[in-house]
Design a protein around this nucleic acid. Structure first.
Lengths: 124, 124
DNA sequence: CATGATACCTCGGTAAGCAAGGTATGATGC
DNA sequence: GCATCATACCTTGCTTACCGAGGTATCATG
């Protein structure tokens, strides 16, 4: 009934999530470019290489979708120790897609950067 | 029951949508930076300045949310001719938010660009 | 054989894009 | 006057997708 004081605080914390939504799929495909990786390894490399911290609840459904689309394929590999790992690798259509998405991404980022240009003049 | 042949074709066309999802809110706030605009005008300027074509069904709910969060405020203005227009303008908290989001955006874009760097070596 | 570490996966709530369809205002043609 | 068109704003319903929480499986260790 009263004012939602909740909103203003929560929304601030949500922006980092919103920001990366669009590029997340590209980031995952891109990190597979050099070679195969297993699930948790993808998360760790996204964190260390690109500063993105993605939860498991996001990555596994995403990888499944990509596999269903034929962009990646997966292969179980026995580890020397511990739980077996499922390694993901880009397929040829996957590589083609990464290149397409990279172009789309850059077009978008450049368009947006054009809008942001006037803003940075304002260094308080 | 049979194979979804639908997917491979449709998903290709959907990427441009996915790509811009994360930055769309920022784009809308950024385009309001120089001054007030009304709804359809926002769409036209996003198209001409940043190459983004956003449908009405996306922009009006988005503007409503931003107004509810106090990032913009709105004002009805009688046009010389035709339907009255609802002009949106950044509030002070809205301006602060644009600056924050711009920083988040650039951090994300730089992180992603780091992942994309190896890819562009491959000009077939 | 219990505990911990590592790894993969799923369920359910929620957010958000957007196509389609609707409403409102004023100008223009007849 | 009235139908039609152009402009502009808004809503509904469908769908996609993030992700927190909780679950399962494998192996090592004490």
């Amino acid at each position: 009934m009263s004012v939602d004081r909740r909103d203003m605080a929560d929304e601030l914390g949500k922006w980092e999530v919103q920001v990366r939504k669009g590029g997340l799929g590209l980031a995952v495909l891109a990190i597979l470019w050099p070679g195969r990786l297993y699930g948790l390894e993808i998360l760790r490399q996204l964190e260390s290489q690109a500063g993105m911290s993605i939860p498991e609840g996001t990555i596994y459904p995403l990888l499944s979708r990509m596999k269903a689309e034929g962009l990646v394929d997966a292969e179980w590999v026995e580890a020397d120790a511990g739980h077996p790992r499922k390694y993901y690798r880009l397929t040829d259509p996957g590589r083609a897609r990464v290149r397409e998405m990279t172009q789309s991404w850059r077009a978008f980022a450049q368009g947006l950067e054009r809008l942001l240009a006037p803003i940075e003049g304002d260094i308080s």
